[in-house]
Every structure is written in structure tokens, then in C-alpha cells.
């Protein structure tokens, strides 16, 4: 299970991108079915989302699994004896207990997603204004000799966003360090 969760870490993002094309592309396994139903995944937004989710998935999982294991299930059991069903237990008890860990994971995901190049590069198709992401845009601009300065401008923007994310991460660690320490110990 853990091996499976860590798979996106060990596989090159370009390869995961290729796999998505293989699955959902026009010649892919699900390609004919998808085109029949007029659903576009590869070279469209769903493809980018899918590829990014796959690549960043371990960040959230790795944050949350140790945290939830450390917290155990007693509070959930208490909620059940008090009459709360599964959904309400999750919403009122589990969720508040993991919220900072979850947010932290999402933040790491976000950092990774912003910089993700390989997988997205393969599935997006680089359609400017539609399926472009910042890193892809930097690459596109940089390969055009006339647009060097624009490439650096976009890069700066990306770096700035990265910096903001880092600040948020540090703030979280400072504010909710105890809670996050629980997962640091076991990770």
C-alpha cells in the first residue's frame, strides 16, 4: 500500500504523462469510448488536473496517514455512541482533527503542482490560453529568442508564488507545530 502511494514519487513525471496519453489519448485504451461520448481529457484541462493530482497525491497521503494513525479512532467511536452517523462523524470529529495536516498537505501539493513540468507537458498539448501552465509558458517563451525578457518575467512570477507558499508553510509550522510534529515523528 505504502509502495503504491509512493509510486508517483519514484516514477518520472514524464512517464506518468505518457501513461495518461496511453490511457486516454485518441489511440489509447479508453480513447474510442471517450471520443464517442465527446469527452476530452488529454490536451485539455481534465488531463492537466489528472496528471497533477497523480504527481502530487503522495504529499497529502504522506501527511495524513501518520497523523490519523497517531490520533486513533477513539473520538470517532465516542461520536458513534453519541448517535452520529459516518458522515457527521467525519465532518464534525475527523475533519477538525486533521484540518491542519490536510491544509499542510494541500500546500505542499500546491507548491509541487505550480512547478510541475514533466507530466503536464506531455498531456497538455501546450495550447496557449487554454491548456498552458506557468512552467510550460516559461519554456515556450524561452525557446523563442525574441521573448527572453518575457520568459524571465513569468519565471519571476512563478518564483514569487513559490516564495509565498513557503511563507505560508512556515507560518503553519509555527502556528500549529505541535499538531504537525505528530506526523513528523512517524513519517
Amino acid at each position: 500500500m505504502t509502495t503504491l502511494i509512493d509510486l508517483p514519487f519514484s516514477v518520472s513525471p514524464v512517464i506518468s504523462g505518457m501513461v495518461f496519453v496511453l490511457l486516454f489519448g485518441a489511440q489509447g485504451w479508453f480513447g474510442p469510448w471517450l471520443s464517442e461520448h465527446d469527452i476530452k481529457i488529454v490536451f485539455a484541462l481534465p488531463g492537466i488536473v489528472l496528471a497533477t493530482t497523480f504527481v502530487t497525491f503522495p504529499f497529502v497521503a504522506r501527511e495524513l496517514i501518520p497523523l490519523m494513525q497517531a490520533q486513533g479512532t477513539e473520538e470517532e467511536q465516542a461520536a458513534m455512541t453519541l448517535g452520529a452517523g459516518g458522515l457527521r462523524t467525519f465532518w464534525h470529529v475527523t475533519m477538525p482533527n486533521i484540518r491542519w495536516g490536510l491544509f499542510y498537505g494541500v500546500l505542499l501539493c500546491n507548491a509541487r503542482a505550480m512547478g510541475e513540468f514533466g507530466a503536464v507537458s506531455v498531456v497538455s498539448g501546450h495550447i496557449r490560453g487554454f491548456t498552458n501552465t506557468l512552467p510550460l509558458h516559461v519554456e515556450a517563451l524561452y525557446s523563442d529568442p525574441g521573448e527572453y525578457s518575457a520568459a524571465f518575467a513569468v519565471s519571476s512570477l512563478l518564483a514569487l508564488l513559490g516564495f509565498v507558499t513557503l511563507m505560508l508553510k512556515n507560518f503553519l509550522e509555527w502556528r500549529h507545530g505541535d499538531e504537525l510534529a505528530a506526523l513528523r515523528g512517524k513519517a
Binding site: 477513539e74 473520538e75 467511536q77 465516542a78 461520536a79 455512541t81 464534525h92 470529529v93 477538525p96 482533527n97
Partner: peptide
């Protein structure tokens, strides 16, 4: 009504 050894109060 169940009371757990380690209380299991909702921390938040």
C-alpha cells in the same frame, strides 16, 4: 453512554 479510559473528548 460510553466513557473511554482516555476520555476521548473532542479536542477542538
Amino acid at each position: 453512554g460510553f466513557v473511554f479510559q482516555h476520555y476521548a473528548l473532542f479536542k477542538h
